[in-house]
Amino acid sequence: MEGKASLVNTHKILMKGLETIMNPKKFALLFVTLTMMLILYACGGGEQKTGETGEQKAPETTGPVTQIDSATAATITGKVTYEGEKPKPIQIRMDAEAACAALHKEPVYAQQVVVNGNNALQYVFVYVKEGLGDKNFEISKEPVVLDQKGCMYHPHVFGVQTGQHLKVLNSDPTTHNIHPVPANNREWNKSMSPGVTPLEQTFPREEIMIPVKCNVHPWMKSYIGVVKHPFFAVSKEDGTFEIKGLPPGDYTIEAWHEKLGTSTQKVTVGPKETKSVDFTFKAAAVIS
């Protein structure tokens, strides 16, 4: 009986509350206010984007170029390994796109976490994060090439200097769009038909990392590390990397992985010295 009485009371309170709110004027005011709040909330809830429409940060400063002295240049080498149970490879379904499926006789797997023999972790971007100060280095005249081949990006992870040309090819017999989604550079989205003239673009600001995607083929993903200097590398199939030509000094080296996050280490290198810096990523660190 008590339960029924409390239910009736709740119902009465609810109805009274609704009666109060549902005054047409109050309701219209409430509706407009809530709608505006929700739209503003939605606006703030997403990823903040800068780009053509957003606020542009000041471009990188330019100054005298620091020449690399090969007589004293040091080298950092190392290996990236994965600790824990190897993740199961995720097969990509290309069946929705006949032109892509026809390019592969074997199943194609996602490159997000690639662990090879001896737990070698591939596609880790390793770069000098701190220690170079405001030094400017010569920008390589050679463009970095990103190819769309077999409906996959080649390479999957790579680095480019600020201002260095990125040359995008489409070697596939199908149409792609290439769409980098930067936070600190201008966003762009270009269509690339089969056999189209290669596209060249540059990124003026440092950014770790810029995701690149093809919205036509949603499995296609690549990541670009944009840094001011040439001291970066990507771990190879055997997990090794090498950063050459580094001026002697104290550095913070960072390793970045698209799913496993980042890891940093400090290192000091003397003239002509080669030092080894190894990184280990744990399975539990997988981020969505």
Partner: peptide, 26 residues
């Protein structure tokens, strides 16, 4: 749902035409 919102980068035309190749997200 198919993350195809930007599969066609231009507007109002699609890939510069009224009928682009109808592949993937396009």
């Amino acid at each position: 749902g198919n993350e195809a919102g930007l599969a066609v980068p231009d507007w109002p035309l699609s890939y510069g035409s009224l009928m682009p190749p109808m592949v993937g997200g396009i």
